[in-house]
Design a protein around this nucleic acid. Structure first.
Lengths: 131, 131
DNA sequence: CTTGCCCCTGACGCACGCGTCAGGGGTTAC
DNA sequence: GTAACCCCTGACGCGTGCGTCAGGGGCAAG
């Protein structure tokens, strides 16, 4: 399977696969004698797992920081990667960190939204917000 | 008043003032014969107004799109800029657009957060989310 | 052999609000 | 006069996950 088909099978693009490889999320695949990458179904499953985690709000760096245990993702649905078994070797720490970051961002945007709504309603802000 | 003092009076930096000017949010100020910018209290008030709107979640482009009516901001608290008088010449349209964008972003981050929380709890996502 | 599609690497682009550095000149106080 | 500090313009940096272009080679079909 060459990169185009593998990318399509994983629901993404060749560029993304090369990017993941470059960032250390995918192991360097075998190459044909002419240098073309060759992927198997295992690699495709791994890419799907990566994309699930990225879609869930983790960053590439989050995954890279746990890349040494990334074989945990080598089953199609990433069940054992970040669930109840919260050992330091799993994704639990980065997941909870990302959860906290998301909560902070949601809080920030919500207060921003309220501030803007007040501005629209009354034309004034209440907290001078010394900057 | 030179740029450093004006920036400090407005609670920001010289770089920001030059940036606003370059983007068309501030009119080009008068210059000393040697080319240095000279600001008065009116400019400072305008900068404060700009910063309030930016802090409220509007983007520079939002303000630029209404720059032709930017004199509405020439009083210290920007009362008349986006409040109940919702004429097309005010900031009301961009404010409501930004409100909608903020709501969309908050919704997106919240669902992301929930997805991630489910992933952490069960190790699975429910919506395959075809991509 | 040639056409056409896919692959390779390397590098820039994007959105946003400035921060920061480089290289050169003005302004003020001693 | 000169040190110390401020100002000028122009240009790159940042963070994120790739998209996209450039220039060159591989692979299968007619």
């Amino acid at each position: 399977m060459r990169i185009g088909d593998a990318a399509a099978a994983a629901g993404t693009t060749p560029r993304a696969l090369r990017f993941y490889e470059q960032r250390g999320l995918l192991p360097p695949p075998t190459r044909t004698p002419s240098g073309q990458r060759e992927y198997g179904p295992g690699e495709v499953a791994r890419v799907r797992a990566i994309r699930q985690l990225l879609a869930a709000g983790l960053t590439v760096d989050d995954l890279v920081s746990r890349a040494h245990r990334f074989d945990l993702l080598d089953e199609d649905p990433p069940r054992r990667c970040c669930a109840a078994d919260s050992g330091p070797e799993t994704f639990a720490p980065v997941v909870s960190a990302r959860l906290a970051a998301l909560d902070a961002e949601i809080t920030r945007l919500t207060s921003l939204r309220n501030k803007l709504a007040r501005l629209a309603a009354t034309g004034d802000t209440d907290e001078p917000d010394e900057d």
